[in-house]
Design a protein around this nucleic acid. Sequence first.
DNA 1: GTGAAGGGCCAC
DNA 2: AAACGTGGCCCTTCAC
Length: 591
Amino acid sequence: MEVYFQYINDADGVKKACDEMKAEDYIGFDTETTELDPYDGVIRLVQLSNGKDTKVIDLKPFADRGDLRTAPELAPLRQLLAAPKPIKVAHNAKFDAKWVKHHLNTELGGVFDTLLASQLIAAGDQDRRHNLAEVSSFFLGIELDKSEQVSDWSAPELSHSQIEYAARDAATMVPLREKIVERLKQDDLVKVAKLEFDCVMPIAAMELNGFYLDEGRWREQLEKVKKEQSVVAHELQQMLSAGVAQASLFGVAEINLDSQAQVTDALKNLGVPVPETTRGWQMQPLAGDYPVVAKLLEYRGVAKSLSSFGENILEFIKPQTGRIHSDFRQIGAPTGRFSCSKPNIQQIPHEQEYRRCFRAPDGRKLVIADYSQIELRILADFSDDQNFINAFVSGADFHTITAAQVFNAAPEEVTSEQRSFAKRLNFGVVYGIGAQRFALMTGLTQTEAEDVMRKYFGTYRGLDSWLRNAARNVVQERAARTASGRLSRFRFDEEDRKAISLAQRNGKNMPIQGTSADILKRALRLLHDQISETSARLVNIVHDEIIVECDAAEADATAEKLEKAMCAAGEEYVKKVPVKVDVHIADDWTK
DNA sequence: GTGAAGGGCCAC
DNA sequence: AAACGTGGCCCTTCAC
């Protein structure tokens, strides 16, 4: 592919380039950086392209003269990037947005992200890859050579090959967007694409902000768990080797407690009827009869804590900020949910000992808000089930009200057992639970479980028929959608009953889980715009929860903004039941 | 030594 | 008859 480009390294060139580009509706946009993390390196190149002309701006001469964040010579560039138009077309715009925000003190005004778009079009196909080379090949049939991607972008003089590579990537964005837009329209994905693009900047900002983890508190907690672990490990070792020692002439054999095979062997030697898998929910029923099983489960708990939530997380504290900057994948799951890694701060144990380690620095507060029962409210809205809707409208304890309806009792007569059944069904129904699993989790017999479920769906006829319809539809259409139009396609063999039943459960779950993700993403955008001029900073999100850090003096105002943004986002998608958000102000990440 | 797969458990 | 959805991280095991 021939690319017409111009290399720019002075103020006059920047001004002219930006003047030329600012008339466009869309420009290809890319950066080349010396490192992957904006806290570790500098931006070397900024590329802009209208498809015909491509400008490669070398920031090194400007950086050598002073601070890029304030350099007046770069004002035209900052204005161009910050303006809502032209829309900046980038591949993985979060990456560039972070660098531009940190090093040029500018937020991207309008974003079109070809990576997110490609993921939306793939509609959950896990086999598709979405790096620029793949996406360019898929949509344009153009094979990009990415070998310069990892070249040395800190060299005093860049090679012609490097500059040409940089220009070509930016130039590719323009035709790529055109092809992608065609597909987005074909698949009716324009609305959800906008939702995703608008969410890029909030997430970029959140990753730059990071979440403060109190290292001292974490180490204290770690010491406690370590002591606990050594006690529990010793006890479990003793109990398990009671069985093995009989078979060994050499006294007590050391068992690797983390080895599935060794533990299973030892349990069998002790006469424990070990199920096919030794996972918690299979082993739990045995814990009452076999103390060694209870001990094993206890050990697994502390072992998990120590390995996944031990010293290793402290290595993620960035020295430059003293905070943790996780990596959030905006479309982490086919449902549209985020995933989070390095470290995954969406799976920090709920116990206070862990959560209290994530706190606001001195003088700051955390504002913590989560949607109350958002998935069930979405289901109520989808299903149009009047009884289910009424349970929410009443505003009373939801599980108690459903129990009252299902068991035909007054709310104050509902037993704790009945409430528990209702609660487990309310949660399980979103995932397409069956009687067998319900029986296992409640201790009911299969017949009793079926009976309770019959009562439940007898009360919520509309819910039942929505779920049945969703299951039928997904088999027919081989696809499902959320409220924003997010699409998930399913592939299965018509003969494969297991695959079909999996698709049916997915067909029920995806629209619900995915709509919840839609709502969160919309809320993030609204929030971002609301707090841009304040001390408030987004620091974490966990599927239905948003955590913001702000100056103590602004905590009340921030709480109000956060609640408003979340409710407004929810109400865009959920109309028939109220959307409830629980918000509180705290010094750390606890209730 | 390295990487993938399997099993397990944390979050929502 | 039908085994509740989405992720990431850790460990062991096993193949290369």
